[in-house]
Design a binder for these strands. Structure first.
Lengths: 147, 147
DNA sequence: GGTAATAAGTTGTTGATGCAATTAAATCAT
DNA sequence: ATGATTTAATTGCATCAACAACTTATTACC
């Protein structure tokens, strides 16, 4: 029935608009700002992986963050402008850049992680871990359907 | 424990990055394009409400779509350029615009809704309605925590 | 070894967002 | 009724995303 599908669509609407994830991103960025960090949520998602392992290529970062190459290229450029990381031409493959954090890039890690955790606890207040994981599983299926 | 919080953070990561919602938006836009519709997912979310009730103000649309006023202003401008709607200065309140669809704006409704439903069924393949609604409830709580 | 296909990055264009500041109209308060 | 405060919308600025086109280096193929 048409009516059913439409109402189904309405229920699905918040997935579609992504209002939850934008709300989270906005809060994260606000928390960064309030703690004196001048980085965006997107920049954080790149730094997050570099704190784990330096020397990643832009391609690696693209795969990890599910972004396309131009997006990563520009994110890296902005982070380089802010002197949080540097591009180093790979000796093995002259096409590729290896990305290394600067001292400043390392320095802000703890502060950033604190704010990320603060954001998460703000977001998940009143949500028990079990239901959150269940929701996550659904999102995972949806993501795999579309990627 | 720090380790726990970090792993909790990792689990929450896909919420934070919004990769699911961007994947959905990307697929929606692709489906629009393949069916010959030249509108973005964001434009769709505005049209969606106008098909329901015309004459909304930009403020109304901002509240319905959870966007700020500048975003709505520019979305409306782009839709006006595409001749899908028009701004009409409200007679009651000269500050406000009332938004009305053009003939073309009405015409594309069915095609758009078809593609939206197609996108939803692609996204939700293998997800039963109950778990989807449960996930939705969690997202709703998270959203209310942050808005 | 030389040509074709592939892969890593960059750049241009367009559309969208967030935040801050601005204009103009409406409402409130005294 | 006038001055102050809200409210609707717009504009400027910076960042980000998607898509396409392009450069340069690498790999594959014959």
């Amino acid at each position: 029935m048409m009516t059913n599908e439409i109402s189904y669509a309405s229920e699905f609407y918040s997935f579609l608009t992504g209002r939850v994830s934008t709300a989270i991103g906005r809060r994260l960025q606000r928390n960064f700002k309030e703690s004196g960090l001048h980085i965006t949520a997107e920049q954080w998602s790149v730094l997050y992986y570099l704190w784990e392992s330096e020397g990643l290529s832009q391609q690696d970062i693209a795969k990890l963050t599910f972004r396309d190459k131009p997006s990563v290229s520009r994110l890296i450029s902005n982070l380089e402008k802010q002197k949080l990381l540097v591009r180093v031409c790979s000796s093995g493959d002259k096409r590729a850049n290896q990305i290394y954090l600067t001292a400043q890039g390392h320095k802000i890690k703890d502060k950033c992680m604190q704010q990320a955790e603060k954001t998460i606890s703000e977001a998940l207040s009143g949500v028990d871990r079990g239901s959150m994981q269940q929701a996550q599983q659904i999102l995972e299926i949806v993501f795999n359907n579309l990627k």
